[in-house]
Design a protein around this nucleic acid. Structure first.
Length: 573
RNA sequence: GAUUCCGUAGCUCAGCUGGUAGAGCAUAACACUUUUAAUGUUGGGGUCCUGGGUUCGAAUCCCAGCGGGAUCACCA
């Protein structure tokens, strides 16, 4: 980050002072009563011209076309852009033309918030515009926005596309690339549609702890923190599953939670350290029931976002109308590799992996090996929504044993466009079985499987009191939104994706410089000369600094008094 | 974590085999009362990511670091 202000920033700060000098508050406190929006005006003016005879709109100036005593500018509000026409003699009825000649033409900039009162009309070239009768400054912008230009055909010039700046300064991104707001609007619709659906079924939204003493319910490395008063370690949750099941034990029939999960693992275009999951648990149901529920829910969500049940994702059109294809895990492996792994033991599976050139290691058990084959050979083929069911018991310590098939559990995952979107079980409610299964996880952990799950004694105690048969479902909201908005990176569906910290240049404050005797108005000059800290300045040659100050004063055309040489020498004492 | 590409003005980008930095927009000044990627004329604006090295001389070549992208590996 540069410390010294750029030329344009200095000019804007000077404009700010001049506005104040003219008695105009650049940051007024009063409410500005908005009565119209850009999109509404451009959509409906021609059909209902009479309704737009007195409008008040507010937003940012995004482009200006000044032509002598009349000008056009584009005002951008939350809904879009509308052109505004402003004529000197309309806003300056008397002799004093300051408001137009000075305030509008000189002191306002692209990015400033203004309010415009006036009437809507059609220009000679047929553009719907607002004719200004009253102009109000609502907020002065001190940093120039990137300029993105568009022509009539919608071609974009000088697009602001640098991902680093877009993610770090999302406020700039969404200001100059407002089309990206659609992703977040759709994200909001996905969540609200799902929430409405659940509420309509009579299920209850709940909140469970984010700070957990045991990070259970999934297998992942947690973020660790510490509570001072209790002097105990706490973890940011990696899952909320075990708490939601406690609520089923408590007697709620249907509970769900949208929430952030935190996993201390790698970051890439499908992983952010914090991500949003939705988990729902419904009593007296099983995973077969859950498949039908998910089909209904996702079709409804897709329609809420797109109006239809289908969505274009890359080259594929995905149809969310159910029912979805159902394949058992073994069937899916047979279908895409021709190999029947259903009866194989660990040694047989290792052979298969070797034949298929899948990398494995010694820590992997039977379930993990099957999962590796599935990931490598099947997943990418599952484009239309497909349920993969009946997983090996070793991979799934929280799901109920299959009602008829030995060695399997009642679980499905929903795959769409080659990626997992949802995961569901008939939940394990046999407390003795659950304890054994978690103990097996401890053994796996002992073999070096760092994904093995931790023991949670309080959760087991809850199960011992009795949990009704229950089906549970988890959906990765970020990935669902990626799918429904045709985005290939998770960063695009998160407002503020995690980034490495910005490089900060060490800076002394203006006060630090003043303390060693530098006149306030010269601090900026020193910064401009490359002295960002008092230490850097003191390390320099005093005579050279004194000479350079004069040079900078001339170069920057500063009308400030040159400090005496003794004063400058004093800085270096 | 590995490989690879990138980092130059407020923004988008040029910059050749090394010779001391350019364009468009933005900005400043002037002109212009229905323009629209407004236009015309003139001007200002740079720690060429940071630090080393090679060289008479580095935005350019070499090394290291920082930040980002892409691909791969792990995970949702």
């Amino acid at each position: 980050m540069s410390i010294a202000l750029s030329e344009q920033e200095i000019i804007r700060r000077e404009s700010l002072q001049q506005l104040r000098a003219l008695g105009i508050n650049p940051y007024p406190a009063e409410e500005y009563k908005v009565t119209a929006f850009a999109q509404d005006i451009t959509d409906n003016f021609e059909a209902f011209p009479d309704t737009y005879k007195h409008v008040a709109i507010a937003g940012r100036i995004m482009m200006r076309r000044i032509m002598g005593n009349a000008s056009f500018f584009e005002l951008q509000d939350a809904t879009g852009r509308v052109q505004v026409y402003i004529k000197r003699d309309d806003i300056c009825s008397g002799e004093d033309k300051t408001l137009y000649n000075t305030v509008f033409k000189k002191l306002l900039d692209i990015g400033d918030y203004v309010g415009v009162k006036g009437y809507v009309f059609l220009t000679q070239t047929g553009e719907i515009s607002v004719h200004t009768q009253e102009l109000t400054i609502l907020s002065k912008s001190l940093k120039p926005l990137p300029i993105v230009r568009r022509d009539d055909e919608g071609n974009i010039y000088d697009a602001f596309t640098d991902p680093e700046m877009r993610y770090r300064q999302r406020y700039v991104d969404l200001t100059v690339n407002p089309e990206f707001k659609q992703i977040f609007i759709k994200r909001s619709k996905v969540i609200s549609a799902m929430r409405n659906y659940f509420n309509n079924q009579g299920w209850m939204e709940v909140e469970t702890p984010i700070l957990q003493p045991v990070h259970g319910g999934a297998a992942a490395r947690p973020f660790a923190t510490h509570h001072n008063t209790l002097d105990m370690p706490l973890f940011l949750r990696i899952a909320n599953e075990l708490y939601l099941k406690r609520l089923i034990v408590a007697g709620f029939d249907g509970v769900y939670e949208f929430g952030k999960m935190f996993r201390n693992e790698g970051m890439d275009r499908t992983h952010n350290p914090e991500f949003t999951a939705m988990e729902i648990y419904v009593a007296y149901k099983d995973y077969i029931w859950m498949m039908a529920m998910v089909e209904e829910c996702l079709e409804l969500v897709t329609r809420a976002v797109h109006g239809i049940a289908a969505v274009q994702v890359g080259a594929n059109e995905i149809n969310f109308a159910g029912p979805y294809t159902r394949l058992t895990m073994y069937e899916s492996i047979q279908k895409y590799t021709g190999i029947d792994v259903s009866a194989m033991d660990e040694a047989g599976l290792r052979e298969v992996c070797e034949d298929l050139k899948i990398e494995v290691d010694a820590s992997m058990g039977k379930g993990k090996l099957i999962d590796e084959i599935f990931s490598a050979k099947v997943e990418a083929n599952l484009i239309q929504p497909t349920y993969i069911t009946d997983y090996p018991i070793e991979m799934t310590p929280l799901a109920k044993k299959h009602r008829t098939k030995d060695g399997l559990v009642e679980r499905f995952e929903l795959f769409v466009n080659g990626k997992e979107i949802a995961n569901a079980y008939s939940e394990l409610n046999d407390p003795i079985d659950q304890r054994e299964r978690l103990e097996e996880q401890l053994i796996l952990a002992g073999r070096g499987d760092d994904e093995a799950m931790a023991m949670d004694d309080d959760f087991l105690r809850a199960l011992e009191y009795g949990m009704p048969p229950t089906s549970g479902l988890g959906i990765g909201i970020d990935r669902l939104v990626m799918l429904l908005t045709n985005q290939s990176t998770i960063q695009e569906v998160l407002f503020f994706p995690q980034m490495r910290p910005e490089k900060k240049t060490k800076v002394s404050t203006a006060d630090d410089f003043v303390k060693i005797g530098v006149p306030t108005e010269w601090v900026q000059v020193l910064n401009k000369m490359g002295f960002n800290t008092v230490e850097e300045l003191k390390a320099a040659n005093p005579n050279k600094v004194f000479n350079d100050l004069g040079g900078m004063r001339k170069k920057l055309k500063l009308d400030i008094t040159m400090p005496a040489k003794e004063v400058v020498m004093g800085w270096f004492v």
